[in-house]
């Protein structure tokens, strides 16, 4: 009768260690996913900002629209992570205004095709990033992750606010 608890205790300890290690690995993977999706999203946003600046140099475009676009693009580039989504949304708005100028689109089809391509990629990038961030945050808020500090020193992923249900939009 005495041997039973003696064997049980190390088994339980081993199981707990295994469970905690596996949980930490899972969280680590989620962090990695968020890092990757952010790096890719950031790269696309940068490309869009530089394309926006390129658009302002097109001969024949409206000076007022150009001014708006230039400032929006610069703000998007300069914004830190907490202001980023707001600045990018402003740039989206400015680009949408320009996109409606039918004669300009017809005059420079290549530039606008590039813009449309970036917009498509942006939608996917945003939805994947938002999904990753919410998964990581949801996991970190669980009691076991907080009690045992399984997140280590990894920073809490920042929510990217704009276009909340962007997933539904990707279909169209």
């Amino acid at each position: 009768m005495m041997e039973f608890p003696i064997l049980l205790i190390p088994t339980v300890i081993l199981l707990i260690i295994w469970y905690l290690t596996a949980s930490a690995t899972r969280l680590d993977r989620l962090h990695q996913r968020v890092e990757t999706s952010w790096a890719n999203l950031d790269a696309i946003l940068q490309r869009r900002a530089s394309l926006a600046l390129q658009l302002t140099h097109l001969p024949g475009s409206d000076p007022a629209a150009n001014l708006l676009l230039t400032s929006a693009a610069h703000q998007a580039r300069a914004a830190d992570i907490s202001e980023r989504s707001e600045a990018e949304s402003a740039l989206t708005g400015a680009l949408l205004l320009l996109r409606q100028e039918q004669w300009l689109v017809e005059k420079y089809p290549e530039v606008f095709a590039e813009l449309d391509h970036l917009t498509e990629r942006l939608k996917i990038g945003i939805s994947l990033h938002v999904e990753g961030v919410s998964a990581a945050r949801a996991r970190r808020s669980k009691a076991i992750y907080r009690i045992f500090r399984l997140a280590g020193r990894a920073p809490l992923p920042v929510k990217y606010a704009f276009e909340d249900d962007s997933l539904a939009e990707v279909q169209r």
């Binding site: 890092e35 990757t36 498509e120 990629r121 996917i124 994947l128 990707v170």
Partner: peptide, 16 residues
């Protein structure tokens, strides 16, 4: 095919 490719590109870090 292009939409799926866009997902591939976003799922991957550079040189990964």
């Amino acid at each position: 095919g292009e939409e799926v490719m866009n997902v591939y590109l976003h799922a991957r870090a550079e040189d990964e």
